[in-house]
Amino acid sequence: MAMNNDHSRLGCGRELDEFWASIDEPPTAHEQSCADCQSARNSLYHLAAVTESMRERDKIDPELQPGSRVKEAIMLVARAEIRRGKKTPLKRTSLGAIEISEQALVALIRFAASTLPGVRARRCEIHADNRGPALDSPTPTEVRIALTVALSSTVKIPETLALVRERVGTVVEAQTSIIMKQIDIVVEDLYDV
């Protein structure tokens, strides 16, 4: 059974796709009198039914899931290839340097913002302002960040953003002594609860 261009139309000239789109509607006057349309309707309807069974069966058929080793192998590579990003110096004690990776700092910021109800932290960019404190210097590291968030449609935006700034600043400083010099927030999305 060859597939050629003619196969996108029925014998009576109707576009198969148009025909398929109306398969759940009652037959038109043309269809009721056209043998091509009736036969096609029946065979396409049958195909649709079998396809649907197959689609639903496939999803739950344990034979049609990838083995657990697939995810394990992917995660092994993903963990090995984590990009830690630049390091931000936190402190220089008499014993040596203490730094934090950009990835850890981003995760901390995301965590801090997401502890507030109605806030989902998305991406975060970090710009470190200085090259870190000198030996036993009381001057903390300062950074600027740009954070994108999705907010619940029920929260008041200005108040919530003020809370996000406050919480991110407090949590990051408590954890790392880093001072948030600037927190730019872009509200990308509002979601319904």
Partner: peptide
């Protein structure tokens, strides 16, 4: 929401990425 999860995976969040694997593999 999924966009948030994808964003987090983009920033290197392994847990978010693992969720996406489970959902789409």
């Amino acid at each position: 929401d999924e966009v948030t999860i994808i964003n987090r995976a983009q920033d290197g969040d392994v847990e978010a990425f693992e969720w996406l694997i489970s959902e789409y593999q």
